[in-house]
Amino acid sequence: MPVQQIAFLVWLLFAIIIAAVFGIIGWRSRQKVDVSPARVNRFRILLLVILLVLSVIFWAYTLPKVPYPTEARQPDMVVFVTGKQFNFGIATHPMPTEKEWEEVVNFGEPVVLPRNKLIEFRVTSLDVNHGFSLYDPDHLLIGQVQAMPGYMNRLRYRFTKPGEYTVLCLEYCGNGHHRMRGAFTVQ
């Protein structure tokens, strides 16, 4: 199940519980019931403890999975990505200048990446901030990193699904933001 779906369901579960509790309490406001403040306080502490314990479990589970690798394994391939209003240049060589970027965008062959290999994307921008995203052949967003001027961000990914991948811009960059794109193939 994609991360999105899990996250959505977790949220939905909590949202339904919250709405149900508010609904029930709202309904129970119709009868007169005396509640001692001490009981409320006990309940409050209990709920807080439960949620904090849940948080810690969440952290323990999710924090080691952050997309920032710590181990400098040698990638099998390095791909360079340079954003500029309103296109992504994607190539196996870097594009430090506008001229090289234009060449890649206008005449460059689409990049083909091997499957099940560790790919390193080196992502930067020649002008404003852009968002480099990976949309898999089913158009599911599987990861992203910011393309920031003045910095080279390194995103590592191992593709398992072959097909055409799309790159959409995920940081607002001006009037052509929604048109900005790039593509590559995984074989």
């Binding site: 994609p2 996250a7 977790v10 508010f22 924090l63 967003l141």
Partner: peptide
């Protein structure tokens, strides 16, 4: 007021989900 607090809770929960780094990797700027 009552529903506003409920909305805060539900929205807050969605915020907490998104503030999880692994989730944000796929939710950021969606």
């Amino acid at each position: 007021f009552f529903l506003g607090v409920m909305g805060w809770a539900i929205g807050g929960m969605a915020a907490v989900v998104d503030s999880t780094i692994v989730v944000n990797f796929r939710f950021h700027n969606t």
